[in-house]
Amino acid sequence: MDNKDIILDVKKLNTSFVSDKKETKIIKDVSFQVKRGKTLAIVGESGCGKSVTVHSIVKLMPRNARVRAKKVQYNALKDGAVTEYSLDKMEAYGKEMRKLRGPEIGMVFQDPMSSLNPVYRVGDQVAEGLIEHEHISKAEARKRVLDMFKKLGIPDPEQRINDYPHQFSGGMKQRVVIAIAMISNPELLIADEPTTALDVTIQAQIMELMKKLQVEDGKSIILITHNMGLVAEMADEVCVMYMGRVVEFGTLEDIFEHTSHPYTKALLRSVPVLDMEDGEELETIPGITPNPADLKEGCEFADRCSECMERCRKGTIPAYEVSPGHRVRCLKYDKFPEVD
């Protein structure tokens, strides 16, 4: 597989936060690839480092974060030729990185309520990136914004383009946030729990919208979520994270049909399904996620794992490739070849 098929290649990404001169590791040796035109879902419970991972990639991190990576490479494809960008070597807010944000990589954030600047009209906020990168006139930008609003199903767009964020409902605000991310027609869309703050009916609408845009234009998506139903619907590949590590990575089929890691199994068992028996209880994962500051050596999931063995608590657990492209970080599979 060459660079044409891989849009984003992340190798051994490590992120830590420094507070009171103490460094706490949050993301540990995260590696994954996003295939062009496909959707990668990153799943895991709250605090497992999903958001930090993608924010580290696009370098939108708070000042006290330290990000190191062996490789974070974005491959832009234009007229059949690939241009490689090493994001890990770029300055966070430098010119190179800024040129990619918007036209190449679009971002949708978790909370639409606070993601829009309260003092500017939504139309201007959407147009801002467009004017910045394409140097077009305001009138032209307005036309493009109107088209995008129509595409995203915002009713009465001519009127609403002049409204302020507080005049929008949550679902409509998220459409505006998506419009900001998509207006420069990026190849890769990173959606960080785009529907968590919205109610279920709106969730479905927003996701359908994103899926439609992806299929029509052949875009790639990284979807961060803890909603397994959404994963099943949207994803081509799935990356399961726990305590800052990728514990299982594979195609949708690998993860749902050949579930391998005990954590992924537990995660799937805790999803409510329609054909549950009366009185059948939904399973939960025992225990709580440990504090990243006082993690012991060995497997991070050991204390909550029903299949935990003595040797799970020693050293760093490597990942094993149980079938091509399906990686599991669990000693149960140590007869398979080790991979990075």
Partner: peptide, 16 residues
Amino acid sequence: LNSDYIKTARSKGIPE
């Protein structure tokens, strides 16, 4: 500067 809309602004690729 710590608010989400600043992050949104940066995600548009506008200068600092």
